[in-house]
Computed example of a mutant assay.
Amino acid sequence: MNRILSPHFTLRELIHSPLARRHGMDNRPGPREVARLARLATHILEPVRTRFERPFTPSSGYRCPALNALVKSSPASQHIRGEAVDFELPGIANRDLAGWIRDTLIFDQLILEFHNPDVPDSGWVHCSYRQGNNRQMSLIFDGRSYREF
């Protein structure tokens, strides 16, 4: 399970979940999801790592359906398909990170989640990528409602 997905990211990093482990869940993706995770690492995570010149580990990548339900995420979450990742970069405000992604990369959905405008590094960045037809949808979620970013 330590397959290399891109120069700096492994499958293990993108499926790691202490919560799944505590609940005895098998959070291993199938081949289609692994291929999508590799595209996500290549098109989102690697450019972020290159631009900000610092290592980081995503907090959430692939989620099996049971884990996704346990965290009360949408049944249509792109995490289930291996198309989404949540992350932060130490020392970089999440708002700045999200702004750079929005202005620079091709993505499907970018959400600055649980963001407080008074605290620039609050929350985390959720970003998804799919092969073709990326919507370039960018939002801020403050814990109550979504608005455009």
Rank of each mutant, 00 (worst) to 15 (best):
Y146N: 13
V71S: 13
G61L: 04
G91W: 07
L70C: 02
I140C: 12
N116Y: 13
P55I: 11
I92S: 02
L110E: 11
I140R: 07
A93I: 14
S138I: 10
P75G: 04
H8T: 02
H126A: 02
E83K: 09
I140S: 02
G143Y: 03
Q78A: 15
I44S: 07
P117S: 14
P75Q: 08
I111E: 04
H23F: 13
E13F: 11
N68A: 06
A69W: 09
R12A: 13
R36V: 04
L105M: 05
A41P: 07
N94A: 04
D108P: 03
A66F: 06
L67Y: 11
F114M: 03
Q136I: 09
T42P: 07
F107C: 05
A20Q: 11
F52H: 02
Q109N: 15
Y62P: 00
I140A: 01
Q131E: 13
A76F: 14
W124D: 06
T42K: 14
A38R: 08
F87C: 06
F87V: 03
A84H: 04
V34A: 02
D121W: 08
R36P: 07
T57I: 14
V48G: 04
I106M: 15
D142Q: 08
E88R: 15
Y129T: 03
T50H: 05
A98E: 00
Y129A: 07
L14Q: 01
S74D: 12
D142F: 13
G143K: 04
N116L: 14
E148A: 09
Q78H: 14
E83A: 07
D86E: 10
L112P: 08
R102H: 10
F87P: 05
G143S: 02
H115W: 09
R22K: 02
S6I: 08
P29N: 04
L139A: 10
S77R: 04
V34W: 14
S138Y: 12
V48A: 01
L45F: 01
Y62T: 10
V85E: 03
A98Q: 00
Y62H: 09
R39L: 13
L19E: 13
P55D: 15
N68F: 07
P120R: 06
N2Y: 04
D103W: 02
G123P: 01
R28T: 13
P29A: 04
R32L: 10
S74P: 00
E13L: 14
P58K: 01
G30Y: 05
N94Q: 06
L139Y: 10
H43D: 10
R39W: 01
R49V: 00
D86H: 11
H16R: 12
T10R: 14
L19S: 12
S74H: 01
R12T: 11
S73T: 01
I44C: 05
P18C: 06
L14V: 00
L37Q: 06
F149I: 00
V125T: 09
L139C: 10
L5C: 01
P7F: 08
E33Y: 00
